[in-house]
């Protein structure tokens, strides 16, 4: 599905990522772990193309995407949910979803607002409400729904649990599991190991912009040294 090889990226003069390698198979939920500042969000932004400078090989469904603009990558079926949500506060819930809408993919079951409302019932009750007047948890659901409207094959979920009440995070976990059942792959970045363990098949540990570990969550659990060193648990 997604193959990242030797990804390097920069913020202005600062070199942030060094030869990051990772891949996501179809139907997988993969977690990118690591402490703050480890480069998780930058990896996400680099994949979707929201950094000024990146180098390396990015292959998405057999297409090289490293030289494409964010909108071109998104149109290929790679959705991005940013960590700070970035919903359009002045637009209504419905309108937010419409902004994310893209034509149905070949052979795919296109997402409609109604299907999003089934996934997140809370949103159905507030279709006409300006998104700025929603709680943080509801906004988090909306931002995921908005990305789904683009009918992605793979969703990049950046820190979905950050700053959200544990109860909403549990709902989020359920939704991700549902998505996986629908055949959508997910790459999520996470600091909360509890949350990552609930939903992911495999994980990578990133530290100082370098991939330090890759394996299943069970393998990680058997390596307390790694958790101690890189996740500082």
């Amino acid at each position: 599905m997604l193959e990242v090889a030797k990804l390097n990226s920069w913020y202005g003069p600062a070199h942030i990522l060094f030869d990051v390698n990772l891949n996501v198979m179809a139907g997988e939920v993969v977690a990118l772990l690591g402490r703050n500042g480890a480069g998780k969000s930058t990896t996400m932004k680099s994949i979707i193309g929201l950094v000024n400078r990146r180098e390396g090989r990015l292959v998405f469904r057999n297409d090289e995407i490293s030289n494409l603009a964010p909108f071109e990558i998104s149109r290929k079926g790679l959705g991005y949910v940013p960590e700070d949500r970035r919903i359009f506060t002045e637009l209504t819930v419905e309108e937010n979803l419409e902004v994310g809408r893209q034509p149905a993919r070949e052979g795919g079951n296109a997402w409609t607002p109604d299907r999003i409302y089934t996934l997140f019932p809370n949103l159905a009750e507030m279709r006409k409400r300006p998104a700025g007047r929603m709680s943080g948890g509801e906004q988090q659901m909306l931002t995921i729904g908005r990305t789904l409207m683009g009918n992605p094959y793979l969703v990049l979920l950046d820190e979905p649990s950050e700053g959200i009440a544990p109860k909403i995070v549990e709902q989020m976990a359920e939704a991700i599991i549902l998505l996986k059942r629908e055949g959508v792959s997910v790459l999520l970045s996470e600091q909360n190991l509890h949350f990552a363990r609930l939903i992911s098949d495999r994980c990578y540990i990133l530290e100082k912009g370098i991939t330090q570990f890759s394996g299943t969550v069970a393998e990680l659990d058997s390596r307390p040294d790694l958790r101690e060193t890189y996740l500082a648990l």
Binding site: I48, A69, P70, F71, S74, R86, L91, T147
Partner: peptide, 10 residues
């Protein structure tokens, strides 16, 4: 409101 986000949405 947010041009980069619109870009990332295709």
């Amino acid at each position: 409101q947010d041009r980069d986000m619109v870009n990332a949405l295709g």
